[in-house]
């Protein structure tokens, strides 16, 4: 493994993934410290712009973490988010940032272990992808 410790922004739904993250903490499960969570009322609220802005500000990856299919507190916000993530992935490939840096993940509120595992796996994936390519340019510009 490289020394590269990715920074990942997680937009987490209050009803599931955000709670699952709390549970992970209370279960004393570990995951990399680069995982940083932003609370949203529903992943349906996650604007594509938030994801792009996170990447623009140097995040190496972004997770949109919502409820399991059929469990959305607001009926189908998670499906709206999943569709948006799919479109974002295409855009990220087009601009050579890479579609792998954004994923939609789903879990239920009590699945602390799933949250921790998902976080670890995604960080490992991003490690493979390497740092956000804009960082290099930014450091050169500086």
């Amino acid at each position: 493994m490289s020394d590269f410790e990715p920074v990942v922004v997680v937009f987490a739904c209050d009803y599931c993934a955000y709670t699952a993250a709390d549970v992970a903490g209370r279960m004393n499960l570990e995951y990399p410290a680069g995982i940083r969570i932003v609370r949203v009322p529903c992943t349906g609220k996650v604007d594509s712009l938030y994801v792009l802005r996170a990447l623009e500000k140097g995040a190496d990856g972004v997770l949109v973490a919502g409820c399991l299919d059929g469990d959305c507190h607001f009926k189908n916000g998670n499906l709206r988010a999943a569709a948006r993530v799919k479109a974002l992935k295409r855009l990220l490939d087009e601009i050579n940032i890479g579609s792998g840096r954004v994923e939609m993940v789903q879990m239920s509120a009590g699945q602390g272990a799933v949250f921790a595992e998902t976080a670890r796996n995604f960080v490992a994936t991003v490690q493979e992808l390497g740092p956000n390519p804009i960082k290099h340019a930014a450091s050169q510009a500086a």
Partner: peptide
């Protein structure tokens, strides 16, 4: 309104 924010995001 129940405040899910889907409309705002779209």
């Amino acid at each position: 309104c129940l405040g899910c924010g889907v409309c705002a995001a779209e």
